[in-house]
Simulated assay, not measured.
Amino acid sequence: MSDSSPRARIGISGWRYAPWRKSFYPAGLPQRLELEYAASRLDTIEINGTFYSLQHRDSFVRWRETVPADFRFSVKGPRYITHMLGLRNAETALANFFASGVLALGPTLGPVLWQLPATRRFDADLVDAFCAQLPRTTTAAASIATGHDERLKDRDWVTTDADRPLRHVLEPRHESFGSPECLDVLRRHGVGLVVADSAGKWPQFREVTGDVVYVRLHGSTELYTSGYTEAELDEWAELCRGWLSGSSCPDVRGRDVYVYFDNDVKVHAPFNAIGLAERLR
């Protein structure tokens, strides 16, 4: 948890979408200024490109330099680890991920998201072993990063400007992850269980297992497409207040809350995010 009182950050999943131009982004705004504009309206963004491929360290530097110092990026872990390796034998892949430039985000680095495929069932030994590998500080992440392979030669970033806590969250999409055994494993490692709203396609877990509550809103009635009504935003605001105060947490201890709207197809995400943020001010 942060040093000060728990805080809610409300943002969007990604920021570069063509339909957002002339709707969320002002007409004529150059594409290179879209992140700067989004960061002037919101206080957090989820970086999704890292899920598909290793990004260049210069991109992380540029993103960090574009946003205010108090801004936070969450970073999505590679699907190579979650989907292709299935969380197994991930040592080198983890090193490559952390060496790719993630640590160049410096103080703007927020939680790291690990999203699992819907076919992945809970395996206690597997999840326990993977969670045990995850670095809990930026110093530990930098140490892991030094084990990267040749793909990162001459383009690595294996240092941190300060030793900061590093928080991880898991977004499973199979109902077996709601078992008491899974919750116990995640709590032992301090890994958060993502609260995902997905129009009923995947289960929605609301158990608090880590020091941060991480919410992904993919659409309440149509996946990635439907917007959230005023009443639905009121409901999510109330849930956030419960996590912030600790009244909805098992130990009655308030948590930082990160909420990302991923209903981007019809340009609902940024406006929904602004609406929820206004309710929590």
Rank of each mutant, 00 (worst) to 15 (best):
A124D: 02
D154M: 13
R72M: 13
S245A: 06
A277E: 13
T146C: 00
R79S: 07
A277P: 11
T137S: 15
W63R: 07
V127H: 10
P111N: 05
W236R: 12
A118C: 15
F24N: 03
K266I: 08
C131F: 03
D149C: 00
E230N: 14
R281V: 04
E222A: 14
L29D: 05
N96I: 08
P250G: 05
L280N: 01
T146L: 02
G254R: 00
A8T: 10
R155F: 01
S248T: 09
P26M: 11
A196I: 03
C240E: 08
C131N: 07
F97A: 01
D3E: 15
H148T: 01
T119F: 09
Q133I: 07
Q55F: 01
A124Y: 00
L276A: 11
D234F: 05
H56E: 07
P78N: 04
D154I: 07
Y17A: 03
R62I: 01
L244E: 11
S13Q: 05
D70F: 10
A199T: 05
Q31C: 03
V208E: 09
R241L: 08
L126M: 06
A231W: 10
F261T: 08
R206L: 15
C182E: 04
E238T: 12
W243I: 10
F205V: 12
R241D: 12
A129L: 10
R88C: 01
R255T: 04
M1L: 12
V75M: 11
D43N: 10
K22H: 15
Y37F: 15
L276I: 09
A231S: 11
A162P: 04
V265Q: 05
V61N: 00
E171N: 11
E235P: 13
A18D: 14
F73R: 08
A95C: 03
G254S: 04
F205I: 13
L116T: 12
D58L: 09
T209L: 03
L113C: 02
R7H: 10
T225W: 10
K266V: 13
L33S: 15
R281E: 06
L116F: 11
D184V: 01
D3N: 11
D154T: 14
A231F: 06
L105M: 02
G28R: 01
S198C: 15
A18L: 08
P165G: 13
S176T: 12
A95G: 07
G49Q: 04
R72V: 11
G192F: 02
F177H: 03
S23F: 05
L54Q: 00
V158R: 12
D234H: 07
P270I: 00
R136W: 10
S143C: 08
L193H: 01
V259I: 05
P172N: 04
H83F: 15
T139K: 07
Y17F: 10
H268T: 05
W114N: 03
R16W: 07
R253G: 09
G275L: 10
